[in-house]
């Protein structure tokens, strides 16, 4: 009987003790880690948006509270970017856990997003961290200002004319650089140029007698130079990385609007770029299309990146990009049509 008793006890240990031990270890480990690091541990499980996206996708933290995020993926490779908190996890492999420590000091709302094309609905994979104020960390005065397109009263959804002048060849800031000069301040100063479309700039220069000796191609080169003369290579490099990460899947690596994720977007069927109902766009915006790009001002482009929408499932990037990044993106997508200096 003693032998049977020993065997029974062993099996009970396996059937009851083992599960209790495993789950107990996890509970102890989580608690122990939090205690050891003096942090609160928050688990975030990433799943493709069709399966629910981030869980949880809404975190409420206290300002100044150290928190350890334990991020794992339940299906495919994801990424996690929390721009406002300086977190950029490039790879969350399925079955692995990535730990990131954060300590948000400033109360507010911090958007986070997946940065890997995990599914066709990747762009929906977002979340927000709400950081609450307390006595030690009072909420900052509301300093948020309206986006520029709103201040200027620009209607992003208006159909603008696309029948302006077009260059015969790719406008080149490089070609214009040597002969540049005599451009009006309204084009050279970005803050004044922001609401001007390149086609309008072309008309303005063409009508200026000072440029009467220049051909149309040279005028277009001057326009390209006006738009790109002050852009820095590192700005283009940074924006290029963001473009590859966030835009290329729909707009294509060369900006031609031919990215695989942009095919057959349901929203595109509702769009009608010409307003005559004849030719809805075939896909996401083609940044190499002169008709589209030369008639759009920078403020329109910035506003569209910031706000998204347009009925095309274009996501908003206003909550993820800084102001500098938004304008850098505008400059970057200009380079699909304007050849920058140094290229």
């Amino acid at each position: 009987m003693k032998r049977n008793l020993f065997a029974v006890m062993t099996v009970l240990l396996v059937l009851i003790g083992l599960p209790a031990g495993l789950f107990g270890y996890q509970a102890w480990r989580t608690g122990q880690l939090a205690w050891a690091a003096g942090v609160r541990v928050v688990d975030i499980v990433a799943r493709s948006p069709e399966q629910g996206g981030f869980a949880p996708d809404h975190l409420v933290l206290k300002a100044g509270e150290p928190v350890r995020l334990r991020i794992s993926s339940a299906d495919v490779v994801h990424g996690l970017n929390i721009p406002g908190l300086g977190v950029d996890v490039k790879e969350i492999l399925p079955g692995r856990v990535v730990e990131v420590d954060i300590k948000p000091e400033k109360p507010g709302r911090y958007a986070f997003a997946c940065t890997r094309w995990c599914s066709i609905d990747h762009w929906r994979m977002r979340g927000v961290i709400e950081v609450k104020a307390d006595a030690a960390h009072p909420a900052a005065q509301e300093t948020q200002t309206a986006p520029l397109y709103q201040k200027l009263g620009v209607n992003l959804d208006a159909v603008w004319p696309m029948d302006g002048p077009r260059p015969a060849q790719t406008p080149s800031a490089e070609r214009a650089a040597a002969a540049s000069g005599g451009l009006p301040e309204s084009l050279l100063d970005p803050s004044q140029r922001v609401a001007t479309a390149p086609a309008d700039a072309f008309r303005q220069l063409r009508a200026d007698p000072a440029h009467s000796q220049l051909g149309d191609g040279e005028i277009w080169d001057q326009v390209a130079w006006a738009w790109l003369h002050d852009v820095k290579p590192e700005t283009l490099s940074m924006a290029g990385s963001l473009y590859s990460r966030d835009c290329a899947a729909c707009h294509g690596p060369q900006g031609k609007g031919d990215g695989p994720a942009g095919r057959n977007l349901p929203g595109m069927q509702k769009m009608d770029a010409t307003g005559d109902g004849a030719s809805p766009p075939a896909g996401p915006a083609d940044f190499t299309d002169p008709a589209r790009m030369l008639n759009a001002s920078d403020v329109v482009l910035q506003g569209k990146i910031l706000r998204g929408g347009m009925g095309t499932r274009m996501p908003e990037f206003g909550s993820l990009y800084t102001d500098d990044e938004l304008w850098a993106m505008v400059q970057y997508i200009r380079t699909f049509l304007f050849q920058p200096a140094g290229k």
């Binding site: 099996v11 599960p19 495993l22 299906d75």
Partner: peptide, 21 residues
């Protein structure tokens, strides 16, 4: 049996990523 218990527990409560489960 002990391995089997772990198999069932990890199957039900563990990561859905098969190669890490």
């Amino acid at each position: 049996l002990a391995v089997f218990v772990v198999v069932i527990l990890t199957g039900i409560f563990g990561t859905p990523a098969g190669n890490h489960n």
